[in-house]
Write a protein that binds this DNA or RNA. Structure first.
Length: 539
RNA sequence: GGGGCGGUAGCUCAGCUGGUUAGAGCACACGACUCAUAAUCGUCCGGUCACGGGUUCAAGUCCCGUCCGCCCUACCA
């Protein structure tokens, strides 16, 4: 399992104060599908996710809820975030919290290292401070005043003027890295993907980078600067470091060398932090920059970025409760081009579930297993002489596996699934064309019948293996029904890159009856515009 | 204001470095079949490729402009 090359993939860490929505789940699923695929490919895979727990906002909510920030974070991690991972079957190898000792201690080491290297200096931060909010405001948070404050800029929340305050801060010399970063983007076109994201970052950096204020002294819920404990480190500086503090930085150089550099899957909103600030931090510390930063798109509901305030925010369990985790994973991975924005609608989800999972893949498994049960007492029959229609299937399977692996390598999960689906379509056509139910009527066609059903079973075997990273639950059921485990071992241990090699299913193995993998679901949409749907599982 | 991306069949989207009659899935209609989750298979229907210029033997595909949509514009997520 660990003999292959390293594949270290990360998700952003959840800001614990957020409410889990399908956007979080989407990122997690994408990273998880990649991780599962690489694991089955034999790569030395590591999937990291976790939570970001520092910052003034969390301190404030915790206080408002009558608890300490640590207790507050603990509660959210256990009640919201870990359950989310379970709900959508995320196979993370580690879960880091920014309040972990391994994180806090080594963030301090990192800071000290930069400080000693001369990359951090004392400066003065100047900003518009709102006394009501007790925080600095950006220009976008200010509006024109009215009434007695006409002509002034006021806080959008309190409608009162802001004060210009000066505060001693420590700054990171990020500006030093402007050219180095541009050279990096130039030398490694795949460093930032997709192309659109790369363009945006390059244009931004070309304007020149400023130094970054990395400390705060107005509150204390954060990691203290080792040389000045009146300051805590800026939350992003803290958060980004999770990717290396989780894998040995500062305490286990062997593990760090084995994992790092990693591949970061992020939403395009936080691309800049990962593609600009983070590499600059690493360069300053003399560490390798990430292998790749991939910025995926937004999920759009009704053509707009979904949001709670517009009632388009959707909790993952609204979907999984009705359609199941596999359907959730399949839908978002197949229906949306990874990297681009994608439209979500209940109608689309429901239609694809029905057409692709239930009628396409699920029914293919049902009809095949049922015929083997009926015509061969459930025993995998020995194939006879292969004809052109049969070898054609073999070729399609082999080609699909190669294409899928190539697509996953490019993080194009949607393309991978499309390639895999050519097998589903080919097999459904194959069965219709070869008419095993007709062959079954004449004993003289017994051999031919065996060949046809073995071909269908082998196709299903390959499908189970390559779809396992995407829809782990249903493929596991299929694997059991195929009676494959005895001879081949666990599904998750099946080497995905050789899934196309024909004839792996053991002749004589006992198959088992299969309940519908994706049962028909009757849905009604009461108010699809608002993203509200009621659905009930039908039988 | 600056920057990025997009505007292709009813819907969701493919169309790479320009090259024969612009593709897929879904939906719709019709036909075949009955192993299967009223599933499957086949066929038909459907587009002035946002708009206006330009380059070219040839443009959805390159250039310019216009209109429309989404996003970013960084320091306490």
């Amino acid at each position: 399992m660990s003999s292959g090359k390293s594949f270290y993939v990360t998700t952003p860490i959840f800001y614990v104060n957020d409410v889990p929505h399908i956007g979080h789940a989407y990122t997690e699923v994408a990273a998880d599908v990649l991780a599962r695929w690489h694991r089955q490919a034999g790569d030395d895979t590591w999937l990291l996710t976790g939570t970001d727990e520092h910052g003034q906002k969390i301190l404030r909510t915790a206080t408002a809820n009558g608890s300490t920030p640590q207790e507050w974070a603990d509660r959210l991690v256990e009640n919201s975030w870990k359950p989310l991972l379970k709900e959508i079957d995320i196979s993370n190898d580690d879960f880091i919290r920014t309040t972990d000792a391994r994180h806090e201690e080594n963030v301090q080491k990192f800071l000290q290292h930069l400080y000693d290297g001369g990359y951090i200096y004392t400066g003065e931060y100047e900003g518009s401070y709102c006394v009501g909010c007790e925080e600095y405001k950006q220009a976008s948070d200010l509006v024109d005043g009215t009434g007695e404050y006409v002509g002034q800029q006021v806080c959008a929340i309190h409608s009162k003027p802001v004060e210009m305050l000066h505060e001693k801060n420590y700054f990171f010399r990020m500006s030093d890295f402007t050219q180095t970063l541009l050279d990096l983007y130039e030398a490694r076109p795949d460093f930032i993907q997709p192309e659109s994201a790369r363009n945006e970052v390059i244009q931004f950096v070309k304007q020149g980078l400023s130094d970054l204020s990395i400390s705060r002294s107005s509150f204390d819920w954060g990691i203290k600067l080792p040389w000045d404990d009146t300051h805590v480190v800026y939350v992003w500086f803290d958060a980004l470091l999770n990717y290396i503090t989780a894998s040995g930085y500062g305490y286990d150089s062997e593990t760090l060398a084995r994992r790092w550099p990693g591949t970061h899957i992020v939403g395009k909103d936080i691309l800049r932090f990962h593609a600009v600030i983070w590499p600059a931090m690493l360069l300053a510390a003399g560490l390798e920059v990430p292998h790749q930063v991939f910025g995926h798109g937004w999920l759009l509901v009704g053509g707009e970025k979904m949001s709670k305030s517009k009632l388009t925010g959707i909790a993952p369990n609204q979907i999984t409760d009705t359609f199941g985790s596999d359907a959730f994973r399949y839908y978002f991975m197949s229906a949306i081009s990874f990297g681009q924005d994608g439209s979500f609608s209940w109608e689309d989800l429901s239609a694809r579930y029905q057409a692709e999972l239930a009628n396409g893949f699920g029914n293919l498994a049902s009809r095949t297993i049922a015929m083997v049960g009926r015509y061969f007492e459930g025993v995998v029959p020995a194939p006879g002489v292969y004809e052109d229609v049969d070898t054609n299937i073999q070729n399609i399977v082999a080609a699909a596996v190669v294409a899928a692996d190539d697509a996953v390598e490019r993080l194009a999960m949607h393309e991978a699934i499309a390639s895999i689906w050519t097998i589903v379509e080919a097999l459904n056509g194959y069965i219709t064309e070869t008419e095993p139910w007709v062959l079954a009527k004449d004993p003289a066609d017994r051999d031919r019948l065996a060949t046809v059903l073995y071909t269908a079973l082998e196709g299903l075997r390959a499908l189970a293996v390559v779809l396992s990273p995407v829809i782990p639950r249903s493929t596991a059921k299929l694997w059991t029904a195929l009676g494959a485990e005895a001879a081949l071992g666990a599904l998750v241990a099946q080497p995905v890159r050789s899934a196309g090699t024909w004839g792996q299913l053991a002749v004589g193995a006992q198959t088992a009856a299969l309940e519908p993998l994706f049962p028909r679901i009757e849905t009604t949409f009461e108010d699809s515009a608002a993203g509200v749907a009621s659905a009930s599982a039908g039988k």
